[in-house]
């Protein structure tokens, strides 16, 4: 049993705000926020079954767009590319970000502040500038543009997001946690893996989620560093959207949403006994 789950269980749905009114307000506000987030999604799903090729008028139910989508080799291949690039770069970014945040929190390095500043440069650099400067860099190294260059770029702009989330979590960590583990005879690496890492799990999970979403959604940086073979979904989608919203893209979004929801629910079911793991 990890510490974070103990903490979690302790205030299981106990809002400390006393009056019911506050709880009611928070609950309904959250519901509204979800309605806001899902309104366009709901429309996308609805339009994906609409016979009308363009426009918002309902002209009857059809599965035509799904059929067309499943025969759209280009989109499917681009989707595969996106998943591959997203998975690899998320894994690397999560590793770099978690390790970096912990080391910078725990140890004092010379030029500490400078390092921290440089970590945030990819976050503050406008995407187009990052795309262009990485392109110049890759050409300088004569690295051919393709999967490898795209993955490097994606790791570069996602890992700071993992790191900053991790730092927020570490800042609130009880420093005596690790001390206690060490006092009880754990080696520093045992202390890290048995105590610190479980404490960081929620931040790792949300960091990885964020990194994956960012990678999956990126257009601007990717467009500069990709080659013709490593086209990702946003690049193909952007091209299609330029000439107006295509119902196939509605179908694609609807499928994506349904699939992720399904995966989430399955993993919830499977992981019921061990909460606190990555999603």
């Amino acid at each position: 049993m990890t510490d974070s789950t103990l903490l979690g269980r302790a205030h299981f749905f106990r809002l400390p705000d006393g009056p019911k009114l506050v709880r009611w307000f928070c609950g309904s506000w959250t519901a509204l926020v979800f309605a806001f987030l899902y309104l366009p999604i709901f429309l996308l799903v609805l339009f994906s079954f609409n016979q009308s090729k363009s426009g918002f008028v309902w002209e009857g139910f059809t599965l035509e767009w799904y059929d067309a989508l499943f025969h759209n080799r280009v989109l499917l291949q681009a989707f595969g590319n996106s998943l591959l690039i997203g998975t690899i770069s998320t894994a690397c970014a999560t590793f770099l970000g978690t390790l970096g945040a912990w080391l910078l929190y725990r140890y004092r390095f010379p030029a500490h502040r400078l390092m921290e500043t440089f970590i945030f440069v990819p976050m503050i650099m406008p995407e187009i500038l990052m795309g262009v400067s990485l392109l110049v860099l890759f050409v300088l190294f004569s690295l051919p543009l393709g999967y490898f260059s795209v993955i490097i770029a994606h790791i570069t702009f996602t890992f700071p997001f993992v790191l900053i989330g991790m730092q927020a979590r570490l800042e609130g960590m009880d420093p005596s946690l690790e001390e206690a583990a060490l006092d009880l005879g754990a080696t520093p690496s045992q202390a890290f893996f048995k105590v610190i890492l479980p404490y960081l799990v929620p931040a790792i999970a949300s960091g990885a989620l964020l990194a994956f979403s960012l990678s999956l959604d990126d257009y601007i940086v990717t467009v500069f560093v990709t080659g013709a073979a490593s086209q990702t979904l946003p690049l193909k989608v952007y091209g299609m959207v330029r000439v107006g919203l295509n119902p196939q893209l509605n179908a694609l979004s609807a499928l994506g949403i349904v699939l992720t929801m399904f995966l989430v629910f399955v993993s919830e079911r499977l992981k019921q006994p061990t909460p606190g793991e990555t999603l």
């Binding site: 262009v132 392109l135 073979a229 952007y238």
Partner: peptide
């Protein structure tokens, strides 16, 4: 055939002239 797209002539120029893409 592998296809890459652009949405302005200048975008194409900057990638073509940088090299690396081999179009």
């Amino acid at each position: 055939v592998s296809v890459e797209n652009y949405s302005s002539n200048e975008e194409m120029l900057s990638k073509l002239l940088a090299g690396g893409g081999k179009y």
